[in-house]
């Protein structure tokens, strides 16, 4: 469903992503790990078509992001890291706008979809509030609601559980897991337990390169008995000060 081939991105002399390749199929939940600044977000942004790669290709269901951006954007749901939304709009106004902009025009369908995601993301209590008045956890869930609104076949979530309390984290993970059956999902995270809990595959990027691409079981088996955090630290610690 998603094929990423030797994707590179440079900003002037700084190489943020130095050749990332992977493919994921329907039903997979890919955990995208790596230290801050490793190139996770940049890679995700290139797959969504927000950033154009310096070289390499990304395809979603066979459509190249560079040559068919609109086709790709139709099929992808994206939760940006900043959980970007328009502060002065209410939750319902915002979701209606996203639905319309995604080409859902029939009133019935809009209210169906909205009702569905509002329940899934537990937004009933705040649906009439403006987004600027919401807590971080709610904002994050508005972002998630916006990403799954059009039932995309590919979901790209940049730190979906960031800022949520443990109960909300649990709920969101359950939600993601529940949707995985007929979607390909890429999520980035810093929480390694999250990978164990829901991911079917782990990719670790460090300094713009893929250093690990395997199942969470294989990943844990690298150092039997060790915590997943320790393995992560060993793999990515070359340049840190700790």
């Amino acid at each position: 469903m998603v094929e990423v081939d030797n994707l590179k991105k440079s900003y002037g002399s700084l190489q943020a992503v130095k050749g990332v390749s992977f493919t994921i199929e329907k039903g997979e939940i890919l955990g995208f790990l790596g230290p801050n600044g490793a190139g996770k977000s940049t890679t995700m942004k290139m797959i969504t078509g927000y950033l154009s790669p310096t070289s390499g290709t990304a395809r979603v269901q066979g459509f190249d992001v560079q040559t068919h951006p609109i086709e790709v954007k139709k099929r992808v749901g994206y939760l940006p890291e900043s959980s970007a939304a328009y502060p002065e709009m209410t939750v319902v106004e915002f979701l209606t706008y996203v639905a319309e902009a995604r080409g859902i025009t029939a009133k019935d369908e809009i209210s169906d979809r909205l009702g569905d995601v509002i329940i899934k993301c537990h937004l009933q209590k705040v649906q009439g509030q403006t987004i600027e008045t919401l807590s971080k956890g709610y904002r994050q869930r508005v972002g998630l609601a916006q990403a799954i609104l059009h039932d995309p076949s590919v979901l790209i979530l940049d730190e979906p559980t960031d800022g949520l309390d443990p109960n909300q984290k649990y709920e969101v993970r359950k939600l993601i897991k529940g949707m995985a059956e007929n979607k390909a999902i890429i999520l980035s995270t810093h929480i390694l337990e999250e990978v164990e809990a829901i991911c079917t595959r782990v990719i670790i990027v460090d300094e713009g390169r893929v250093v690990v691409d395997e199942s969470p079981e294989d990943f844990k088996a690298r150092k039997p008995g060790a915590k997943i955090d320790e393995i992560f630290r060993e793999l990515t610690n070359k340049n840190s000060y700790a």
Partner: peptide, 14 residues
């Protein structure tokens, strides 16, 4: 500034 440009640019709109 708010980063909502990311949202706008990932909607299927030219």
């Amino acid at each position: 500034r708010s980063g909502s440009i990311e949202l706008l640019m990932t909607l299927p709109i030219s």
